[in-house]
Design a protein around this nucleic acid. Structure first.
Lengths: 261, 261
DNA sequence: TTAGCATGTCCTAGGGATATAACATACTGG
DNA sequence: CCAGTATGTTATATCCCTAGGACATGCTAA
């Protein structure tokens, strides 16, 4: 294992070796009756010291992936668990607003500000024009699920109050205000939790988050809402079904049951 | 910033802080005329020492992302903005396979292994049954875009060779092999690059990645492929359009233009 | 029984990562 | 001009990470 990490960033050797061996074990590369290579051989193979190999082995033992016996060798355990990624799905919501029913809202800020260049371009208004910006979190059973930052043209925003937004669905308020929600374009990517988002979502800085931006339009394709959302991947995931002919079932967002830690 | 790190393994504090700050700068959170928070304030915010913050700042300076001046403060450099969300979409794929045309494949491994519990459950075969596992990356103009780990039932996998997989689309090979791709269920979430995936994708450990898992089925709803993919968010993003009535236009995957570095 | 090999234990040593602290230097605002 | 603030510099101390080696102990096969 090469000491220099080609741009991958600084990660201790023992941990990189751990990932490699764990993958091999989970792939079933070591049948139950055949021992893994010895510590010395592994250390030669990967160009690390025996201490480093031992450190790795301790982690694998703690994971229950291997069993070691002095004099005999190291053996992969058959019941080796794979990645427990497959959380059960509990509730699901199939349109823009209905997952609101299973969550509670906390309103963190609510203000009218001049539109930044990006917001102005997205909402198709002039730069500096007044927009309503709101920051909310949605929680389920007390656990934050998402952090929602929304921008709405001021005229539309004034059709509802701060208190109304604090206790319901923005989409419904927009419709009550006369806008007819018709379509939405969403973009999904991944980001890191930072010093602003991490406390609000109850995660640590540097954790991965699902980032979704969405422009909601009315029937004349005028933008009426710009949403920038961050989701905790342990609480929420995006799910979608497709068929070859393009007529897939509608996209689904689902909650994910938190994997046992 | 807590010492505890779920996801990417043990990564030094200065490097994790670097990734977080870099993202904020690239997101344009610090206008050119407003200084970043001072070293002392950042160190308090994140619970790290000033030395660690300085280490981070050195890296950002080396990247050309910030400019520091004694007495004045630290400023984001204007050329540092990442792609505004309006990246050009170059190729767009409205089905499972066509984005292959704009990318090149590198095959990293190709082997037949016994099915792990998760793979067996997903492909609906007995545990320990033989499956073909392949690890590939797709690159566009030499830049890795995605890391694809696929599992295919052995019988189907043997209808094509390693070389054929190394130079084309798996979906097409599956169809040539007699399977008729009919539907797919996908799940999207976010993960951190680890010491295995980071080098293959040419990113640093701890960077956020889009994680997509997909089960592809034939017309009898039998699983024929289990895909586990990681995408670089600076190269790829998932995009989808919806309409109120659920008959949204088909889902789109698009490439994002690479931000100048 | 004995040689060989595997894991378990212990020691030394260097370098990197991090916290804490003190002090120096440059800019800005009143 | 001076006080406040920001970055630059230096020093000490404590861990963790890694390499290299010596030795002990348990298992297996010739």
């Amino acid at each position: 294992m090469d000491r220099d990490d080609q741009g991958a960033g600084p990660v201790p050797l023992y941990h990189r070796l751990y990932l490699v061996l764990r993958q091999q074990i989970e792939d079933g590369r070591f049948p139950a009756e055949v021992p893994l290579p010895g510590e010395l051989e592994i250390s030669k193979q990967h160009g690390v010291s025996r201490i480093t190999v031992r450190r790795t082995m301790e982690m694998l033992t703690a994971d229950g992936l291997i069993e070691r016996r002095r004099g005999r060798g190291t053996f992969a355990r058959s019941g080796a668990l794979g990645t427990p990624i497959t959380g059960q799905l509990s509730g699901l919501a199939d349109n823009l607003s209905s997952y609101a029913e299973h969550t509670t809202v906390t309103l963190h800020s609510f203000e009218y500000i001049p539109a930044s260049p990006i917001v102005a371009a997205t909402l198709e208004i002039e730069e500096g024009g007044s927009v309503q910006k709101a920051v909310r979190t949605r929680s389920r059973e007390g656990v934050p699920v998402s952090l929602l930052t929304t921008h709405v043209p001021a005229a539309l925003g004034r059709t509802y109050t701060r208190e109304e937004l604090a206790s319901g669905s923005l989409i419904r308020l927009l419709e009550r205000g006369g806008a007819r929600v018709d379509s939405a374009d969403s973009t999904i990517t991944a980001k890191l939790a930072d010093a602003f988002s991490a406390p609000l979502l109850g995660v640590q800085v540097g954790q991965p988050l699902i980032a979704l931006t969405r422009t909601v339009r009315d029937e004349k394709r005028r933008p009426i809402e710009y949403l920038s959302a961050l989701y905790r991947p342990d609480q929420y995931e995006v799910r979608l079904s497709m068929s070859r002919d393009g007529s897939g079932s509608p996209n689904l967002w689902r909650y994910q049951q938190k994997p046992e830690v």
